[in-house]
């Protein structure tokens, strides 16, 4: 028996929106710890890792650890039936091949029951070691999103360079080139507007903008984004989900030949 209840149902809608352009199908891992997922895009260049801890749910019951294979696109379709202020309950029984979503309006005057077929998905889990990163940039997620959108109109790749001067995002394309530098700014009264750079070593890495731009679909989940970089390692772009967990994206860098 697996059952979880999330009063802030829009959160689940936003989480699925933040995954659906990257991943087609995924196994959701259910355990007493919470509801989690690790999935790669079809070309194995990017990976998304989601964690929603059990304590963050109003009700969470998971009798045994198991995985539910779901089509993310179909899940997004089902969640379209929920209003933003609905309470969402997800239920699955042992040995069944369906999952039930229940959407309740806050005043309890409308209840939707949606059943979705589960899938068998062969997926490779990657072991991601806890690493010390050479540079960690924390900045407003909307700022990061608009930088990625702006640069992707000029070029296909973004070079992220962290130095004592700040973090520079640059691109080059047929029509020209552009670079945007953000300096450390921790003096702001609003912590969500701060840009904080922790640097052990200067780092320069280049990434495909098409993936990074997909990651910024998670912008509505968190006011701040954390970008962790080390030379010749995948970047980690993390959005914290308040009181529940996080969504982390990993992207392999471009390699100079």
């Amino acid at each position: 028996m697996f059952e979880l209840r999330l009063v802030q149902g829009s959160l689940l809608k936003r989480v699925i929106d933040a995954i659906k352009d990257l991943v087609n199908d995924a196994n959701f891992d259910c355990s007493s710890t919470g509801f989690s997922l690790q999935a790669m895009d079809s070309s194995h260049v990017a990976l998304v890792a989601l964690l929603l801890r059990s304590e963050g749910f109003e009700h969470f019951r998971c009798d045994r650890t198991f995985s539910m294979g779901m089509s993310i696109a179909n899940m997004a379709k089902m969640l379209k039936c929920a209003s933003n202020d609905d309470i969402i309950t997800i239920k699955a029984d042992d040995g069944t091949d369906t999952v039930t979503f229940m959407f309740e309006s806050p005043s309890q005057d409308k209840i939707s029951d949606i059943e979705m077929k589960l899938m068998d998905i062969d997926s490779d889990h990657l072991g991601i070691p806890d690493a010390e990163y050479e540079a960690i940039v924390r900045m407003p997620s909307t700022e990061f999103g608009s930088i990625c959108t702006s640069l992707s109109t000029i070029g296909d790749t973004v070079t992220i360079a962290v130095s004592k001067q700040g973090v520079t995002f640059s691109t080059k394309g047929d029509i020209g080139s552009g670079n945007i530098t953000c300096r450390q700014n921790s003096s702001t009264e609003k912590p969500e507007e701060a840009t904080i750079i922790e640097m052990k070593e200067p780092v320069v890495l280049t990434f495909a903008l098409k993936y990074i731009t997909t990651f910024t679909k998670a912008t509505s989940l968190s006011s701040q984004v954390t970008i962790s970089l080390s030379s010749d390692m995948p970047v980690v772009v993390e959005y914290k989900i308040a009181e529940m967990g996080h969504i982390r994206y990993y992207l392999a860098p471009k390699i100079e030949e």
Binding site: S43, H44, L126, T206, A252, P253, E256
Partner: peptide, 14 residues
């Protein structure tokens, strides 16, 4: 010139 790396080059399957 640059090529796109794959994640398996960095993280091992479990």
């Amino acid at each position: 010139k640059s090529s796109q790396g794959r994640l398996e080059a960095f993280f091992k399957p479990t």
